[in-house]
């Protein structure tokens, strides 16, 4: 998709994004779109609270951190293209009505008598208190709101990566306005809305599971099963701020992608494991074990 730059008239490519800078005059342009069926337009935006300098510091600290089994070259990685991107996401909420059943464990104490006979044939009886568990079935209803479920609507950034840098402070939501994304890259919604809804429901179910485990009475529980009906579902398109960087640590390997939450500074990157270090550590452990074994045998 191409539009003419309002500043210099040059043609600016807006493929997959709704905000870009003109390559000739560097003017930050924002695409304003008319509502159309099947095209999600963001309702809310979480603005960036950290600038590039702070993001670079966070990135440097993350890459320089000592890790036992990571590739040592990571600390010397060349960072290229640190970019602030407004990533499209959906904010899901619903009313959840859940029926559940579980086996609830209730502790009780019993006094046990034990009789033992020593070498001389003397019999001694002693008592001790033992804690046992009685299991009782329980079934019921749980109701509540599921709120603040954020799933990615981006083609480039998956839910797993987004989840690693969550949560966002959703109290800072603002209505979408071109002024908030001006000068930044704002990615268009690319993932299928139905797939995002399915993913939101999965995350909602996980959240209900966590709540149900806390909701159970007794001293412990097992066999918890539940079935949830989600009603009044709402899924709002939003933009969330992310710093995205590629760190090249080896010429033959793909660069490491690091994402930083543009609001909280939470950082994530799949640090590659150095198998050489793992093998060395295993060999060291085996050697140490063998040495202890030999020393013990000689000691006897």
């Amino acid at each position: 998709m191409q539009f003419a730059c309002e500043q210099c008239g040059a043609s600016v490519d807006f493929a997959g994004v709704s905000s870009a800078a003109c390559p000739y005059c560097a003017s930050p342009s924002v695409v304003e779109r008319a509502p159309a069926p099947g095209r999600a337009l963001p309702s809310f935006v979480l603005a960036f609270t950290s600038d590039e300098a702070r993001a670079r510091t966070t990135l440097g600290t993350f890459l320089g951190r000592r890790r036992w089994f990571s590739d040592g070259a990571i600390a010397r990685a060349q960072v290229s293209g640190l970019r602030g991107v407004y990533v499209p996401a959906y904010l899901y909420s619903a009313v959840a009505r859940t029926t559940y059943s579980a086996s609830i464990g209730e502790h009780y104490e019993e006094t046990e008598e034990t009789t033992s006979t020593d070498a001389s044939g003397k019999t001694t009886t002693s008592t001790r208190t033992v804690t046992r568990t009685e299991h009782c079935p329980l079934a019921g209803l749980h109701v509540g709101y599921v709120t603040d479920v954020v799933v990615s609507g981006s083609a480039g950034l998956g839910d797993d990566e987004l989840q690693r840098v969550e949560p966002f402070d959703l109290r800072q939501l603002r209505r979408h306005a071109p002024a908030i994304i001006s000068g930044w890259i704002a990615e268009d919604f690319a993932r299928d809305q139905a797939a995002c809804l399915a993913r939101s429901r999965t995350e909602a179910m996980d959240s209900i599971g966590t709540r149900l485990r806390r909701f159970m009475p007794g001293d412990n529980h097992s066999d918890l099963t539940w079935s949830t009906r989600l009603e009044w579902e709402g899924m709002e398109p939003i933009l969330v701020p992310m710093w995205i960087a590629a760190a090249r640590y080896h010429e033959d390997k793909p660069p490491l992608r690091v994402v930083i939450n543009g609001q909280t500074g939470a950082v994530h990157g799949e640090i590659p494991i150095s198998w050489l270090r793992v093998v060395l550590a295993v060999l060291l452990l085996v050697g140490l074990g063998a040495a202890i074994y030999v020393l013990t045998r000689h000691g006897r």
Binding site: F3, A4, C5, E6, Q7, V12, F14, A26, S27, P28, S29, V30, V31, E32, R33, A34, P35, S43, F44, A47, F48, L91, S93, Y145, T147, D148, R175, P178, A179, I180, I181, S182, G183, W184, W232, G234, E236
Partner: peptide
Amino acid sequence: ALPAPPVMTMVAADHARVLRCRECNAAIAF
């Protein structure tokens, strides 16, 4: 946590625009 009803802004057709400073007319960024 249900979003409040949106404030509808009418955009007639897709277009790109540059947001300008009211003081010096230069392009501005967030």
